[in-house]
Design a binder for these strands. Structure first.
Length: 181
DNA sequence: AAACTGGCCAACCGCCGGAAG
DNA sequence: ACTTCCGGCGGTTGGCCAGTT
C-alpha cells in the first residue's frame, strides 16, 4: 500500500492563487501562526492542498521576503554556496535573508548557470569547462537531472563526502575567509 | 500584425526523513 | 520493530510575456 495523498485532490483548487485565497491564508496565519499545514486549508476556508498553502506562504506571501532583483553580491554568494553545497537550495536560501529556495533555484537555472557557462565554468562542478573535456557536449552540461545529482554527491567539487549538516561549519569558515579578503 | 521563440517564475509532483502511533 | 503520516525538499512543468522574425 502506498502513501495516501495529503489531501482530497477531487475537492481542491489548483493553479494560480486568487487575491481572495491569498487574503484568507494571510489572515489565518496572522491569527494562528504557521504549522499544521494539513488542517490549515479547512480551518482557513481554503479549497487547497496543505502543501500548496505552505508553498504559497513560504515562496510568496511571507512578510519578510525581499523580492526584486538579485544584487551582484547575492549572485556571488549563491555561486560560492553552490560550489560548497551543490543543489541544496534550502541551505543556500538559509544564508540569504529574504530569499526562498524556489526563488534561488529559479534564479540559478535562468541566470547564474548561463553566467557561469559564459565564464567558461561548468555550473555543476564549478570547474573550467576545458577540464571536463574539450569535446564535451554542452547540452549534457546544461541538463539537470537525477544523474547529475548523483554525480554531485559522488564527486563534490570540493571533495565533500559528509552529510550536509557537517558541511555547514566548513561553509561558514569558507565564507568568513572570503569576507576577510 | 501575426506567428514563433525563448525566458521567467509560480506552482505542482514525487520522494525522503523523521515523528508519532 | 513496523507502519503511517506529515513536513520539507529538489526537480519539473506550464502559462504568461516580451522580443524576434
Amino acid at each position: 500500500m502506498g502513501r495516501s495523498p495529503c489531501c482530497e485532490k477531487a475537492h481542491t483548487n489548483k493553479g494560480a492563487w486568487t487575491k481572495e485565497e491569498d487574503d484568507r491564508l494571510i489572515a489565518y496565519i496572522r491569527a494562528h501562526g504557521e504549522g499544521c499545514w494539513r488542517s490549515l486549508p479547512k480551518a482557513a476556508g481554503l479549497l487547497r492542498c496543505g502543501k500548496s498553502c505552505r508553498l504559497r506562504w513560504i515562496n510568496y506571501l511571507r512578510p519578510d521576503l525581499k523580492r526584486g532583483n538579485f544584487t551582484e553580491e547575492e549572485d556571488e554568494l549563491i555561486i560560492k554556496l553552490h560550489s560548497l553545497l551543490g543543489n541544496k537550495w534550502s541551505l543556500i536560501a538559509g544564508r540569504l535573508p529574504g530569499r526562498t529556495d524556489n526563488e534561488i533555484k529559479n534564479y540559478w537555472n535562468t541566470h547564474i548557470r548561463r553566467k557561469l557557462l559564459n565564464r567558461g565554468i561548468d555550473p555543476a562542478t564549478h570547474r573550467p569547462l576545458s577540464e571536463a573535456g574539450v569535446h564535451q557536449d554542452v547540452s549534457s552540461t546544461i541538463s539537470f537531472n537525477g544523474v547529475k545529482q548523483e554525480n554531485d554527491k559522488m564527486n563534490s567539487p570540493n571533495g565533500f563526502v559528509e552529510t550536509d549538516e557537517k558541511k555547514i561549519p566548513a561553509v561558514e569558515e569558507s565564507l568568513s575567509r572570503n569576507g576577510e579578503n
